[in-house]
């Protein structure tokens, strides 16, 4: 199974579609994703948002900033590409493999829920060997839960967790949110 990437050539940025596909392939293997992956890059904006649609294929829509090397604008960063795709695929796997059935659709997640789920993904990514900066995710978590010890304790629990269900994740996040 080989990931597909759209567009195959880029006009506004120096990205490499083959590189994106090979990074996605590697992640599909490591994460045990059971279906094809299609990545669509919106190169017209430097923002870094992603949206994932799960059907027979997992379609990940990415704004170019998410794959970009912030040190060298318009150039691709392998690390950012891997980290962005890994987060999207881990979320997709959570939804596919059960336990996340009652999670709201992506568009209906609120910012606190998104932050908690991100931490759950990035903690697992770190254990898979993807280099991450925990403080970045803690800062986002604090912005959505509160700048205090209760929120920090919730962050640590989610970061260290594997095999959470949506209900469990939501319970820790809600308890940690005093903001």
């Amino acid at each position: 199974m080989t990931a597909t990437v759209e567009p195959s050539e880029f006009k506004f940025v120096s990205f490499d579609a083959d590189l994106i596909a090979s990074i996605a392939d590697g992640l599909v293997d490591v994460l045990g994703i059971d279906r094809p992956v299609h990545v669509i890059v919106d190169e017209a904006t430097p923002l870094a948002r992603t949206r994932t649609e799960i059907g027979d294929t997992i379609t990940i829509r990415v704004e170019s900033g998410a794959f970009e090397d912030a040190r060298q604008p318009r150039h691709q960063s392998e690390l950012s590409t891997a980290a962005t795709l890994a987060r999207a695929l881990l979320r997709a796997r959570d939804r596919i493999s059960g336990g996340f059935g009652e999670a709201p659709a992506d568009d209906d997640l609120d910012l606190r829920q998104i932050a908690a789920w991100e931490v759950y993904c990035v903690g697992r990514m770190e254990r898979l060997g993807v280099p991450v900066n925990p403080q970045r995710w803690k800062y986002n978590f604090r912005n959505r839960h509160g700048f205090n010890d209760i929120a920090d304790a919730a962050f640590e629990r989610i970061w260290a967790a594997d095999g959470l269900s949506w209900g469990e994740l939501e319970a820790v996040s809600t308890a940690g949110a005093t903001a």
């Binding site: 912030a70 040190r71 060298q72 925990p134 800062y139």
Partner: peptide, 12 residues
């Protein structure tokens, strides 16, 4: 920057 989780030189 440290508090917010970024590194020196991370951005252009």
């Amino acid at each position: 920057s440290e508090w917010m989780g970024s590194e020196i030189g991370q951005y252009a």
